[in-house]
């Protein structure tokens, strides 16, 4: 398959995409914007939020499909802004706004798509921030290789949760879930040398830097990373800043021993700040 391309129509223009690309990837390469919420480039397509729907014509039949997961294929005709697409996106935004009335990202999205504040009768809790995009669940599984959190319950009761709603025993405190959450529903608080993750109800001890004494990462993360590198874990470890500083100093020493200014030309030595 490598190197193969497919040709299809995007908003009336013939475009080329690499085989295996989704419509969303092909559109981005062609400079066509398609809004997404649950999609994240580091993760497999999930197709849950339905915001990225586009109208796909195939064999004379027009259907709405999720651009984030639908593969670009020879002979398709894809439209990204038809009235049908806009209507669907608007309703999706309205539904998410009703669920999460106070999340800025959703409020902006709804406003941009012209959704009125009270367009739907059933209102979510003011503090509800989770749109169930599943990025946290997927990043934990796909990128970190853990399955510390997951979806629980089904239908309208669906939520993201650590097993049995208790502390997540498999959580290593990497905070990747916090990083990928688009709405701020997953939070990490560092306090008193401890890392608190919500809504996972999980608390992990942080390791302190043996040089500067600041707590910087959960011990479990470092053990996990050492495990990946098949290295033994040393609790007497440095925080990233101190480690860089140490490496920098070592390099400086080496360069002073040799000729001055031996860094490759064009690359400036970065200043380390603490």
């Amino acid at each position: 398959m490598a190197g193969q391309t497919v040709n299809f129509k995007l908003n009336g223009e013939e475009i080329r995409a690499a085989a295996g690309w989704t419509i969303w990837q092909a559109a981005r390469a062609a400079g066509v914007f398609i809004p997404t919420l649950c999609h994240h480039e580091a993760l497999h397509p999930f197709g849950a939020c339905r915001l990225c729907v586009v109208e796909v014509e195939k064999d004379g039949k027009k259907t709405l499909e999720a651009a984030c997961s639908y593969p670009a294929a020879e002979g398709l005709s894809v439209e990204t802004e038809t009235p049908r697409v806009q209507k669907s996106r608007k309703m999706t935004a309205a539904l998410l706004l009703a669920r999460c009335p106070s999340v800025p990202l959703i409020r902006e999205l709804a406003a941009r798509l012209g959704v009125a504040e009270d367009s739907l009768p059933l209102k979510g809790r003011a503090e509800e921030a989770c749109i169930l995009c599943g990025r946290c669940v997927r990043v934990c599984r796909e990128a970190i290789g853990k399955r510390a959190v997951s979806f629980a319950y089904r239908g309208p009761q669906r939520r993201v949760s650590a097993p049995f709603g208790e502390e997540a025993p498999d959580c290593i405190g990497c905070t990747a879930c916090v990083f990928v959450c688009p709405t701020g529903a997953v939070k990490a608080v560092r306090q008193d040398n401890r890392l608190r993750l919500s809504p996972w109800q999980t608390e992990l001890p942080l390791l302190s830097c043996s040089a500067c004494g600041r707590s910087f990462a959960a011990e479990k993360v470092l053990r996990h990373l050492h495990g990946l590198q098949k290295a033994s874990f040393d609790p007497e470890t440095l925080c990233p800043v101190c480690r860089r500083k140490q490496v920098g100093e070592a390099l400086e020493k080496v360069s002073k021993l040799g000729k001055a200014g031996s860094f490759p030309p064009g690359k400036e030595q970065k200043q380390f700040k603490h």
Partner: peptide, 18 residues
């Protein structure tokens, strides 16, 4: 169908509830 919906996608979960 609302009870049995998995709740994954927005239209089925949120739309069904509305």
């Amino acid at each position: 169908t609302q009870d049995e919906s998995c709740g994954k996608c927005t239209p089925c979960r949120e739309g069904g509830a509305q």
